[in-house]
Amino acid sequence: MAPIPTPPAEPQDNPDAYVGLDAHSAESQAGARGWSTVRQLPPGAIITMEYLAGRLNFEVTEGKVTRCWKG
């Protein structure tokens, strides 16, 4: 039987800190803080709800982050 993979560690970071930043700066900051994947989404986007460790999601309205969550 194959071993169960260990998920990557997530940065100890507060997603609320990205709200209000412009999307480009927020993505750069997230990468520098260790997030392996950053996903920018328009408001109301239909997405799958699987949790992916190390991913940070941004809801972006008119170039600004209006919501941010892990996974």
Rank of each mutant, 00 (worst) to 15 (best):
P3D: 10
I4Y: 12
P5S: 08
P7G: 06
P7Q: 06
A9Y: 03
E10G: 07
P11G: 05
P11K: 00
Q12N: 13
D13A: 05
N14H: 03
N14T: 04
P15G: 02
D16F: 01
A17E: 06
A17W: 00
Y18K: 01
Y18N: 02
G20D: 05
L21N: 07
D22H: 09
D22K: 09
A23G: 08
A23L: 03
H24T: 15
S25F: 15
E27H: 08
E27L: 05
E27I: 12
S28D: 14
Q29H: 11
A30V: 00
A30W: 05
G31K: 10
G31P: 11
R33C: 02
W35A: 00
S36D: 15
T37A: 11
Q40N: 13
L41W: 10
L41I: 11
P42A: 03
P42E: 14
P43W: 01
G44S: 03
G44Q: 08
G44W: 06
A45V: 08
A45P: 13
I46G: 10
I47W: 08
T48I: 00
T48E: 11
T48N: 13
T48H: 13
M49L: 13
Y51L: 08
G54V: 06
R55M: 08
L56M: 04
N57A: 01
N57K: 05
F58Y: 10
F58C: 07
E59T: 15
E59M: 13
T61G: 03
E62M: 03
G63D: 10
G63L: 05
G63T: 09
K64T: 14
K64E: 11
V65S: 03
V65W: 06
V65F: 00
T66A: 04
R67M: 05
R67Y: 07
R67F: 12
C68F: 02
W69F: 12
